[in-house]
Design a protein around this nucleic acid. Structure first.
Lengths: 333, 333
DNA sequence: CTCCTCGTCTAGAACGTTCTAGTCAGGCCA
DNA sequence: TGGCCTGACTAGAACGTTCTAGACGAGGAG
């Protein structure tokens, strides 16, 4: 007898009838808008509670021209996107906006994800590390403000908020050189977003120190890192390695240690992302951290500025990274 | 001059005017509903494309009594939830439903997440490993069908879909015993969802084989596993270990290897979840896999059954797990 | 020639809100 | 007494769809 019959959900009219007022007044009370006496406010609220009234956001948004809705497209695979979501929720709430989420999964591309958000009448979109070609994004940006997070995009209409990845690698190299390292190799991220910049930062930093640069192919995953490390073991081992990201660095660490090389004794290793895995006591990887709070705050702020028509000076906002030193780096032996 | 001015979004009426038909007819064409000739269909569709019309899901859902919307609450931290989301998207699409996502973050609890979905007029909710007390969930289920995924809940009104975690540990133990192990220790998950069941499965399996059981405290994270492994190293080492989950197992592996113990040479290790990390060539952990596709299909199916009023025999659906054997287990030396 | 049916199309009312433009009572001032 | 506030409230139109009921021809059956 648990017939959870979908007996029509209570509406404003139901509350109004019960409280003996008009629907308009109930609306006023629910929105905490001015225009109702304290006594009626109390009475209406009680009536609403009694019949379990919940506002219908569909109807609400349909009526009011502004939806105060920010669409976010994220990848279900990326742990870092989870961190960004956390920051975005905070930033959006601060600005009086709600988030509408749409996930990219192995079976659901970016286009369906974006389309569903467009149907939802989002005012602006925030895309986390999108894979779509720049032309697609540029086109999308003619419809509504688009902010791309954590991926550089060359486009006249799309806003970009990202970390200064070249600067991040420069920090890593400077740290290693300051420790006394002279032979630093970079394990590359290939065509992944940010890889080119990180490689460049590595090269420039070494050049500035008058030291030779060497780049070996890597990738995004632990397996890519493991392969790169095996390649390194074939020749004379460098005294330090900078790696495209933490996952890849993990693979490097694993292979080096299994080959009997100690870290940081024989080789120092620096990762990138300061992911949860890097912080584990068993890994404790020196890494370059992205400032999630600033990235997300800026992304939301930029979307709102665009909505308000506030003039914007630069299309691209670049956030400085931070080096987190842990026990995977030490002076060379 | 890139004034992306928010000039009113085109509506049905705009398309209708341009195509020279009524809004009702445009609606018919957009929904691919019967009642329009092929010629007009074509004409309307062209008009819609030309002005870049997109249906407004708010208005659409407001009008039609069914929202065909399934609310999903997930945790931003849990990698496994990403896998579940992937499956849910597929299952929902199959059933002609859309997903409305709401995330739980460190700064945003389950209640706000659920509330936002209720405002969105979801027809049913799917909660991934919720932390809320059973009473809260039971209460929620009086409003609309609620399906809890991947956590056992004792409730008369909430549907549960989960993996037979006891069976999973039984598989792990049977595998180890078949390899010849006689001394198998379990690293526990404490109060985490599923931990009690896994512990029980471990105990029952060993008992069935007439072997002694030993449980040491663990937890959810790599650090918990590392701590447990250090404790194991203090006494005589068992020949095999079953661990609450993969992350924890990773910590166990790391500490054992650093202590110079070979895996699977001296100790075999089995994890739980078959997460991406377990599949990495550098880890290659034998693990118990949850059947994501079946879990998600059943969850969606159960929600729909409840909505249709289809009578349902059992409140709780339990999906059998599968053991994935990799190179972290071998016969004892 | 009339009556029906069928396919195509349209008018207009919903859906549950918010917003605009009021009404109405009471108090204050002259 | 009368006029004018002001605060509390309400009627009714919007928002962009879908749905119901019915209009209008064209064609076929009697």
């Amino acid at each position: 007898m648990t017939r959870t019959g979908p007996e029509r959900r209570p509406t404003l009219a139901d509350v109004a009838a019960r409280a003996g007022v008009s629907t308009a007044l109930v609306s006023i009370v629910m929105r905490e808008a001015p225009g109702a006496s304290a006594a009626t406010r109390e009475r209406v609220r009680r009536a609403a509670d009694e019949i379990g009234y919940r506002p219908d956001s569909r109807a609400r948004l349909l009526r009011s021209s502004r939806s105060r809705l920010l669409g976010v497209v994220f990848g279900v695979q990326h742990a870092f996107h989870g961190d960004l979501l956390t920051g975005l929720y905070d930033a959006a709430e601060q600005a009086g906006y709600e988030l509408a989420l749409s996930a990219v999964t192995p079976g659901r591309g970016e286009q369906p994800a974006v389309d569903s958000l467009l149907r939802d009448r989002c005012e602006a979109l925030v895309l986390l590390g999108p894979q779509s070609p720049a032309a697609t994004l540029t086109d999308l940006a003619t419809r509504l403000p688009v902010v791309v997070l954590a991926r550089p995009v060359r486009s006249a209409t799309v806003d970009v908020v990202r970390t200064a990845d070249d600067e991040g690698m420069r920090l890593a190299v400077d740290h290693l050189v300051a420790l006394g390292h002279r032979d630093v190799v970079h394990v590359d991220g290939g065509r992944a977003p940010g890889a080119a910049e990180r490689r460049r930062g590595y090269r420039e930093a070494l050049q500035r120190h008058g030291l030779p640069a060497r780049v070996v192919a890597g990738g995004l995953t632990e397996d890519d890192g493991a392969a790169a490390a095996r390649r390194l073991l074939e020749g004379p081992l460098p005294s330090a390695v900078t790696v495209f990201n933490d996952r890849c660095a993990l693979g490097v660490l694993d292979v080096l240690r299994r080959a009997g090389r100690t870290v940081p004794g024989e080789v120092s290793v620096v990762g990138y992302d300061d992911s949860r895995i890097a912080r584990l006591s068993s890994v404790d990887l020196t890494s370059v951290a992205q400032d999630v709070e600033q990235l997300t705050t800026l992304a939301v702020g930029r979307a709102l500025a665009r909505l308000d028509g506030t003039p914007v000076d630069r299309r691209e906002l670049v956030v400085p990274p931070r080096l987190v030193v842990r026990s995977s780096t030490a002076p060379p032996s």
